[in-house]
Design a protein around this nucleic acid. Structure first.
Lengths: 165, 165
DNA sequence: GATATTAACGCAACTTTGTTGCAATAATGG
DNA sequence: CCATTATTGCAACAAAGTTGCGTTAATATC
């Protein structure tokens, strides 16, 4: 069941990899940091906008200032825990857990409900294309560094054929 | 020589495909429309932000209102002549000629000079991945509609090893 | 060619999203 | 416990894009 609607569970254990990045960056363990991290860990393939994250936090009773959240998300992205990218449908940023392994998974966004998640099933071909592109770029004298693959469409929940009610 | 710095040439002939789309959408042939179209046709693989387009127009003596340009770019995107996508480095839109054929050309953006262009050379393996992704999505119950592939890196002009001066 | 219709334009005001300055607070190390 | 300094909250700011509305000018029709 992809794109679950249930709210993410409590903080959860912080994976060693992430813990290490936080420490290396000298980030403190504050209430906000743990809550936000918990948000992303509860749905590792999903992405959240600042507004969505704020709403989730508020919904669970955490009264985090909007500026604080902006800065926290920035910080987490800066130290490599989160990955930030532009939302293609609005002038906003979207954040998701950074790939800890080599996994370069394409992002899928539903144009109806605007939820996003990573397509880990397709990370293999994506990797292949990435290296192909890097080769092509190199032959032209350019230097490729980061490949970003995203697919827009309609998710299972929003496909008209499937009433699901 | 990719990413030429020279200003695009004059209006140029409007390809039939584009002309058809303009007419189908009932767009009028105004000074602004022709000028903007000329901008993109002069560098078919490149993309322009609103600000860049406005600067180019102003530079060649055309005093187009900024709101008018916003609306014109929207209109051209709406009727399928241009393609709009979010700029990954700033909260802005970027416009480029829409692919007329089936080709899904990845976009390359130089993180140093922020110029962008389409990598037409790499469209073959990319095309394969697109249909592959659609299959994967379908098997999960989702419906893929549009694939967007972008690469960030450093372009030949900005690679430190190559002085080029 | 004159006239009516309406897309396109220009201006000003507004909205959304994100950022900055700064004083107050609270993790963390000793 | 105390000092240090990352983090927070507030308010004010800034950039990019949008909306309302009266005016201009393509296009169609006579």
């Amino acid at each position: 069941m992809p794109l679950s609607t249930r709210p993410p569970k409590e903080p959860a254990l912080v994976p060693a990899e992430i813990q290490a990045r936080l420490e290396r960056a000298g980030l403190r363990r504050t209430l906000a940091t743990r809550a936000v991290l918990g948000l992303f860990l509860a749905n590792p393939q999903g992405t959240l906008s600042h507004a969505q994250a704020l709403a989730s936090l508020t919904a669970r009773g955490l009264d985090i200032n909007r500026v604080t959240l902006y800065r926290l998300l920035d910080r987490l992205a800066a130290c490599g825990v989160l990955q930030r990218h532009a939302n293609d449908d609005a002038r906003t940023w979207r954040y998701g857990l950074a790939d800890t392994d080599e996994g370069l998974a394409p992002r899928f966004e539903c144009d109806a409900c605007h939820r996003q998640f990573r397509l880990t099933e397709a990370s293999e071909p994506t990797r292949a294309v990435a290296s192909d592109l890097f080769r092509t770029l190199a032959s032209l004298g350019h230097q490729g560094q980061r490949v970003d693959l995203s697919i827009h469409g309609t998710c299972a929940n929003c496909v008209p054929q499937e009433p699901s009610a």
